[in-house]
Amino acid sequence: MSTLHTLSASWHERVWVFEQLCFATSGDAILLIEDAVLAAHSPITLASFLAKCESRGVKVYVLQEDMQVRGVHNQYKQLKPVPYTGFVELTEKHQRHVAW
């Protein structure tokens, strides 16, 4: 069983969750939604987090609609934009969900 972690708060508000998720298990997935998508706009904020996730085999996604409504432009090629149908597919693939 693997886990889908969703993060809904801004990196600046909840950096401890991003730090904890650097320990996510290989095969897990992380999806940034709501204010967590704000970090995608800066080319610096998520760089080290995404590198750590990539090295552990943890894929990171960002919800397209939440970026679009906020005017956020994704600066990272390791951060994969998904629509809501992609969110559903992630819950098909991962049996456990943690909403941080």
Partner: peptide, 8 residues
């Protein structure tokens, strides 16, 4: 968010 997820 939950509603959009449920529709999808």
């Amino acid at each position: 968010s939950a509603w959009q997820y449920c529709l999808a």
